[in-house]
């Protein structure tokens, strides 16, 4: 497992070797902040000193932005042939998968944490509940990891980054839509309520919501972590196939 460190380092610094990282970070902050201030976000009109309206859009924003980070993880290596170099170095497939995933996750975490000035703004305007802010950040980071697990998997399936992006987007969109009330109602119209409940339980929105209310439910944490574990397992299988 000590082999993960050099892999992580190369991959993480790799984001900053091209303009991609800077474009991504700036775009992420601009979009997330402007969504919060938009008439849908009502950041000011909400009248409470909280980041709820800021994080409200994260499941949606991640749907587009995480595939942009994840699509290159394996597709790029396959296209350029470096995957042959990487997988003939003395590393196990699991180490390679973990090294890459953790680097991408660290990068997304950095993006999420760069929004911290928003929290400071809220603190300047009022007296926010720091517990809620902390749990929301935790939830956002866990959710980013789950999205990234899916994107890493789809990127291991193809050497084409565009296909990888679209597959990830579709998979992530499914997991968001499952939780929308209109979608659940439709499901309940033809599925037994019990099954519809189980299905909507797979939605990222459902699990993320609790974090934004300051509730860190071990069940939600376990949901995201086990989704990460499962997708990484499939990632290894896909590469060793």
């Amino acid at each position: 497992m000590s082999q993960i460190r050099p892999l992580f380092k190369r991959e993480f610094l790799g984001y900053f070797r091209s303009p991609v990282a800077y474009v991504f970070l700036i775009a992420f902050l601009l979009i997330s902040v402007s969504l919060a201030f938009s008439r849908y976000g009502n950041f000011f009109k909400a009248g409470t000193a909280s980041l709820e309206t800021y994080f409200l859009f994260f499941p949606w924003l991640f749907m587009f932005i995480v595939p942009a980070v994840g699509m290159r993880l394996w597709s790029e290596e396959k296209r350029s042939g470096t995957v042959e170099l990487l997988l003939t170095l003395p590393v196990t497939t699991l180490e390679a998968v973990l090294g890459k995933f953790l680097a991408g996750w660290a990068f997304l975490t950095l993006a999420v944490l760069l929004s911290f000035p928003m929290a400071l703004t809220v603190a300047f305007l009022g007296d926010p509940d720091w517990g809620i802010i902390a749990s929301t950040y935790l939830g956002a980071i866990l959710m980013a990891g789950a999205y990234l697990g899916i994107c890493a998997l789809t990127s291991a399936l193809t050497k084409n980054q565009v296909i990888s992006f679209i597959l990830s987007l579709a998979a992530c969109a499914m997991l968001v839509f499952l939780g929308l009330s209109s979608f659940t109602t439709t499901l309940e119209s033809f599925l037994p309520v019990g099954i519809a409940d189980v299905v909507s339980n797979f939605s990222f929105v459902t699990h993320f919501d609790a974090f934004t209310k300051g509730i860190v439910d071990p069940k939600d944490v376990a949901f995201f972590l086990s989704l990460i574990g499962f997708t990484l397992f499939l990632n290894v299988v896909a590469l060793e196939r």
């Binding site: 070797r17 091209s18 350029s80 042939g81």
Partner: peptide
């Protein structure tokens, strides 16, 4: 064809 990470 000696693949290597191009941006390094």
């Amino acid at each position: 064809s000696a693949p290597a990470y191009p941006e390094m």
